[in-house]
Structures are given as structure tokens and as C-alpha cells.
Design a protein around this nucleic acid. Sequence first.
DNA 1: GTGAAAGCGCTAACAA
DNA 2: TTGTTAGCGCTTTCAC
Lengths: 350, 350
Amino acid sequence: MARRATRRPSDKTPDIRAVAALAKVSIATVSRTINGAPVVSDKLSKRVWQAIEQLNYFPNTQARSLVSGRSRILGIIVENITNPFFPELIQSFEEIAVANGYEILVSSSNSDPAVLTNCVRRMIERKVEGVAVLTFGEEEPVLENLAYHDIPIVLAEFHLDDPKASTILLDYATGIRTAIQHLVQLGHRKIAFLAGPHTIHSAVTRENNFRTAMQEAGLPIDKAWIIECNHTPKGGVAGFEKLQSLQSRPTAILCSNDMTAIGVLRAAYLKGLKVPQDLSVIGLDDIDFAEFTLPPLTTIRLSRVELARAAFEALRQQAENRPTGPVQHEFLVSTELVVRGSTAPPPPGV
Amino acid sequence: MARRATRRPSDKTPDIRAVAALAKVSIATVSRTINGAPVVSDKLSKRVWQAIEQLNYFPNTQARSLVSGRSRILGIIVENITNPFFPELIQSFEEIAVANGYEILVSSSNSDPAVLTNCVRRMIERKVEGVAVLTFGEEEPVLENLAYHDIPIVLAEFHLDDPKASTILLDYATGIRTAIQHLVQLGHRKIAFLAGPHTIHSAVTRENNFRTAMQEAGLPIDKAWIIECNHTPKGGVAGFEKLQSLQSRPTAILCSNDMTAIGVLRAAYLKGLKVPQDLSVIGLDDIDFAEFTLPPLTTIRLSRVELARAAFEALRQQAENRPTGPVQHEFLVSTELVVRGSTAPPPPGV
DNA sequence: GTGAAAGCGCTAACAA
DNA sequence: TTGTTAGCGCTTTCAC
């Protein structure tokens, strides 16, 4: 595969002056035309657009935002980009942002405070107009600086007492309750929970919601059946093995996220345990992959699109309503149970 | 979870002048200190750093790059961010870039020319210093503009005849040859190939390498066993079903990527076919997930880290060796077979 | 409706 | 070694 490229005849990238000269107008008129100011006459406007086309002129964003004070960049910080939940989230966020004329700066903190601090510094330097901190609970070290620099923030599951901060609440309760009810209807009573790391707020919230749902269903909570994992498949394998080493074992496992559930599926397979005949497994997130696990994973869907939309909306309101218009500070994102093939009645006699 | 934030006492974000005033030096000295110019005296430098700390001053990147002419932003365009191969690639690319003082702008083309055109426009406007186009074959429409704007480009599997363009060649041949040999050793002779879309160069290359490797192994190539899929699990399902509908069926399937293989695994499971006892399956890419499929996927690893490093290196050389220093224009990334659990001898009597 | 000119925050050339 | 100043490419008053 090969191809020859065409380079610009002149050696300098065209600027607003070049356009103005070619169109025989002032640079102010060019600027107005580009920005759609309503005052420019049709005649000049046409000349300007022609010149722009002819020179293949692209306005310089740096200069633009230097003078306008608006970078039109939004930051998004996620916990771990290799967890498929996050790319899907980022993609939605980017789509919405780009559709609204914003650029995004992505950072994956990987649970490393140094990395996080560094990426916040970079975002401040780039003058982002807002940051969505979707690390689900490791955000504290960096909030200070963001707030100090007057940058709007939106957080998941964390409330910051600041006029420029918003919070996205995730309605885990509904999804988790429905999941437990689903298991109960199938005949399960012995249900384990493989939790996420307790350093992550949303993991704690998920666990609390599990406890509540179990109580509501009148089911006993066995302490040994709630195990802290790390939201990765490896963690799911480890959690499953701990469960297997117990005298009394659950017939169903609810996992704090899909990655954990995938680990469980794998560990069960290696142990010769059939899912869902011998063991039911439920995940949380509904990553795209959940449909393609073996068996397809029953899981609690947390809509990335909804989450991304809420995050963008929160930031946009803050960025654009500068003179303290009314701003919504709380957003709620729903969850729902998606039943696939990893749940079934428990084996007889247990 | 709640917390109170501290905001800056003054209402204006500090600029270089504020630092200069507080440190009682000129703004030039502040600039020199920040940029590590070797001439600043220890005494003044210390005063400046103190002032910077005290004001919590962050230099404005926009202004900086406006005057220096260097944005320190690199673009990366990928085919589809929801294919796990790409987030892993992006993560590596970002790590390397950030470690070298660059920012990255990510775009997922989703095989949509309009999206692609738009994101190239945005990159040009942001004055990126180089773009890694890792769409694996859909790049043509945008190359023109990038070249026209004198922006360095690095492409996978595509050679652009331009002084600012570099190419990354992927050594599929080795990995694919090894994979075929592996199957032959297990006793397979009837091997199918589920290809990627023919619009993607690298998919075509992969298919060609399959043909070559089969010939080298002295194996017949059945035309009906080479099926064009679309690099997604769904495509893998469809490909598998086509294969099943045939009179004469293969005992092993090599897939153009892991996502396709995952689809095959799933379709086989639903048909009651056991992998690897009844059917061997090999993927290509070795996404992180490949280790956690059921059974764990035997696959050809294409190192994301190596690929990201090559892409960054190509761009950096172009961006930094402005006055036409010697520049490497071709990079080779290796592949290797990773044997896991989805391959075994064919069932007896076929 | 259009143009001239000031200035966004910074770097770099030149002076001292 | 340090300070003064021009100007990067653009938007935005303010005149006309």
C-alpha cells in the first residue's frame, strides 16, 4: 500500500491575516465570519469563506482560547482504562463532547496517586473547563487543586461541598434489589458477594446495597460470603477459590463488577463446576463483553451513555452558566437487571 | 461521602506577572526558571519557586505553545475504541507520551469517514505535532489534509510517500506461520480462516499471510473456508455458522482477531461443540481478555506496548528533528504465538 | 456593517 | 546574570 501526498505550496501555515488579505477584508471581519457574528454582510462573508477554502485555513485553537478565555476542553479521569467499562464510557463522553464543540483529555489514574496528581496538573495547565472524575472513590487527593483553580468538577458517588462541584448518584439499589429478587425467585437462599476494593467508594456502596437487599429479602448474610476482591478477573478467581475452601458454600454469587464475574466464570470452569447448573453468577456494569462470556452473563446494567451524558451535562452547565445561573448539582443514573444465561435454579438438595 | 473544598482567596488565577511581582524579579526570569534555562542564579530561582508554590501557579499551556510554536500534543486515531485492543494500545501510547512531556488527543473513527474527517480537523486546529493513524486501513481520506498541514504521520501497514510520514510494519507472517505449524503438529489439516473486512489493509495482510503459511505447510486452501467477517464477536458467530452449514467442515479455525475468536467460542458453545476437543480456535492480538475466555484462548500476540512505542518514536523523531536530521521511516513490530487452552488434536476419524 | 488597535499569557531576541 | 520588549494568532472593544 503506498500513496503520494500533496503538500501545501507555500511554506507557512495560513493565518487569519492571510485569509483577510486574500478576501480583501480586515482580520476582524474574518473573525466575525468564522464565529458566526450576525453583523457580517453576505457579500463579505462569501468572500471570506472562499478565501478560507482556497487557503485550506484552520483557525488556531490555542490563540483562540488564549484570548477568549475558553479552552473548550473537558477532562475525564477514569480509574482504569483497561477495564472495558471505561472505554465505553469514554467513547460516549467524547461523542457528546465533540457534538457540542468540546475536546476531551483522558487520563487513567490506575489507582496511582502520583499519576493522578500529575494528570490533574496537566489538565489545569491546559485550562480545561471542567473535569469528570470517574475514579469512583480515589479522587480526594486531587479535588483540592481543581477546586482551588476554580475548575468545575463532577464526581461519581462523592459529594464535594463546593458551588462548582456536582455529583452523579448511581441507583445501585434498584438493580441490586432486582438481582437478589431474581435469585430468590429461582430458589436461591445462599448468596455470596464478591466486593470491590474498600478504598473505592462505589464499591462500598455496592456492598451496602447488597446487604440491604438481602435483608429486604429476608435472607441471612453470611460474613464469610462477603469477600473483598479487586474488580479484576484475577480477583474474581481468588474470591471464588476462597468461597470454595469454605465448609458451607453459596449457590449463587453476586459480583461487584463484570470483570470479577468473568474471573468467577473462569475459575468455576477450571474446577469443573457448571454455570448456571451448579452455580449462578451475576455481574454488575453490563460491559459489552458480558453478552459474549460463556455462558452469557446475567448482570446489572449501569448505562455508560446515561452516565456520560450526566457528566457532560453537569460540566457544561457549570462552564457555560458563568454568571451563576441556576445549576443542577445532582444527577441520578439508573440501573437494571439484564437476565442472560449465568443464572438458574440451584442444584437440588442444597 | 462529603467534603468541603478550599478555593483560592483572590478571584483571578495567577499569571506569570503575579509570580514575578511576588518574587520581585522580571517575568523573563520566571519564564527562564520554569523552563530550566541554565542561566538563572540560585538565589532568584529559589525566590521564584517559592512564589510559584505560594500562588499555586500553573503556566498556561495555550499561551506557551502559541509563542513557542509547539503544542506538545500528539493525536492518535484508532479504529474502534470498544475493541479492547485499542484501549490497551492507547494506554501504552499515553504513558509513553506523558512520560516525555506530551499530551494526547484520542479519536475513535468507528469506520465512519465523516467522524474521521471531523477529528482530523480538530487535531489540525489544536496544532498537534503528529498523528498516529492506527485505523489499519481506513486512513486514506484524511491523509491529504494532515500532509498538507505539514503534520508528521505514522501509519500501520500503509506506506505514504512523504518525508514526514513513517510506517509501522507488523510481522504477522511469523506469528501466523507459527500458529499454522502448531495446528499441524497437533494433527490438523483442515484449517479455516475468519478474515477481517477487506476494506482494512491489515485484515487483508493477515489473510494473505494465512494463505502463504498454509502453502508453506503444504496444506490445501479451501476457498469456502475463508470467510470475510467484521472483527467483532457477532461477526465471529456469523462466520462460524457459515462454516457449520458446509458439507465439509474444518477442524480448526484461525481468526483474524481475538474478538472474532470470542464470537466463535460462543457460537460453538451454543451449538454444543466443545473447544478444543471438537474444534480448535486461534485468535490474533492477544487482548488482555484472551486469558479469560473459556477456554483460555490460544492466540497470536501483537504487542501493544511495542506498537505504541514505535508510533511514539516515529512521531517524536519527526516533531523534534525539525531541521531534517536523519529520521527512521520504518518500524517493525513482532508477533508471537501464545498457546493456551483453545487448541488440541482434532477429534479422531475426521 | 466594517476596520483599527489593544491585549490574552507567555517565550525569545536583544540590551544592559 | 537579569530586564525590556516585540509578537505568537486570535477576539473584542471602540470608532467610523
